[in-house]
Simulated assay, not measured.
Amino acid sequence: MNLLTPIDGETDLRRVFSRFPTGVTALCAMDQDAPVGMTASAFVAISITPPLVSVCIKHGSATWRQLRSFGRIGISFLGASHAATARQLAQKGGDRFQGLGYETTPDGAVFLTDAGAWLDCSVEQEIAAGDHDIILFRLHRATTAEEIMPLVFHSSVFHTLTPIG
């Protein structure tokens, strides 16, 4: 077996990157009377002191252009029951929040119900990186639902985790 083969274009690179499983998050905020949101699977915990996290968002995202202007953004760690929710929030048009349960903070962060964790954040910095931006968030408040198993994205398909042992 040849361990290393040349990457031949975007399709090959997407296939390679898809082999690393990631959690799925929803970034959401309230715009006047309507929630705005999107999914992101490139979430990373960055720092404990100060509390910082990041996500990567593709250049040109109209939803991110809208979200970035809000003072607070809610990040929900999607749970095992959220596969349809993740697809709905990733769609280009229509009402992304139709039928979804959510709560809003007084600061305008929106959190999806039945998530594994909720992070109340503000944008700290945006860093250009290739065809994406790395969005660095400062974490203000957070809570978890320990009983919720995560939604995982692997090989371009949603999965859940099953504990071993």
Rank of each mutant, 00 (worst) to 15 (best):
N2F: 11
N2H: 14
L3C: 10
L4Y: 14
L4M: 13
L4E: 15
P6H: 07
I7C: 04
D8N: 14
D8K: 13
G9N: 00
G9I: 01
T11D: 15
L13W: 09
R14E: 01
R14F: 03
R15A: 12
R15W: 02
V16N: 06
R19H: 14
P21T: 13
V24N: 10
T25C: 12
A26W: 10
C28L: 00
C28M: 02
M30V: 01
M30P: 03
D31E: 11
Q32D: 15
A34K: 15
V36K: 13
V36M: 08
V36L: 12
V36E: 14
M38T: 02
A40M: 06
A40L: 00
A40W: 06
S41M: 03
A42W: 03
A42G: 05
V44G: 08
A45T: 15
I46H: 01
I46P: 00
I46L: 13
I48C: 12
T49M: 11
T49W: 08
T49K: 15
L52K: 15
L52C: 08
V53P: 00
V55N: 09
V55K: 09
V55L: 04
V55G: 03
C56H: 02
C56M: 11
K58Q: 14
H59M: 00
H59S: 07
G60W: 05
S61I: 02
A62G: 11
A62F: 06
A62N: 13
T63F: 03
T63Q: 09
R65P: 01
Q66G: 00
L67T: 08
S69T: 14
F70N: 01
G71S: 12
G71P: 09
I73V: 11
I73E: 03
G74Q: 09
F77K: 09
L78H: 12
G79Q: 11
G79A: 06
G79C: 10
G79T: 05
S81C: 10
H82L: 02
H82N: 13
H82W: 04
A83R: 10
A86N: 04
A86G: 05
A86L: 04
R87L: 10
L89T: 00
Q91I: 07
Q91R: 13
K92C: 01
G93H: 14
Q98Y: 08
G99W: 00
G99N: 07
Y102N: 07
E103I: 01
E103Q: 15
E103N: 08
T104W: 05
T104H: 05
D107M: 08
D107C: 00
G108Y: 06
A109I: 02
L112M: 00
T113L: 08
T113R: 05
A117Y: 02
D120M: 06
D120Q: 05
C121T: 15
V123G: 06
V123I: 14
V123E: 09
E124W: 11
E124Q: 14
I127T: 09
A129D: 11
G130N: 03
G130S: 05
H132K: 02
H132Y: 05
I134V: 14
I135Q: 01
R138W: 03
H140E: 04
R141H: 15
R141A: 10
A142K: 13
E146I: 04
E146F: 00
E146C: 02
E147Y: 08
I148W: 01
L151Q: 05
V152A: 10
F153I: 07
H154N: 09
S155H: 12
S155E: 13
S156Q: 07
F158R: 13
T160K: 14
L161R: 05
G165H: 07
G165N: 13
G165A: 07
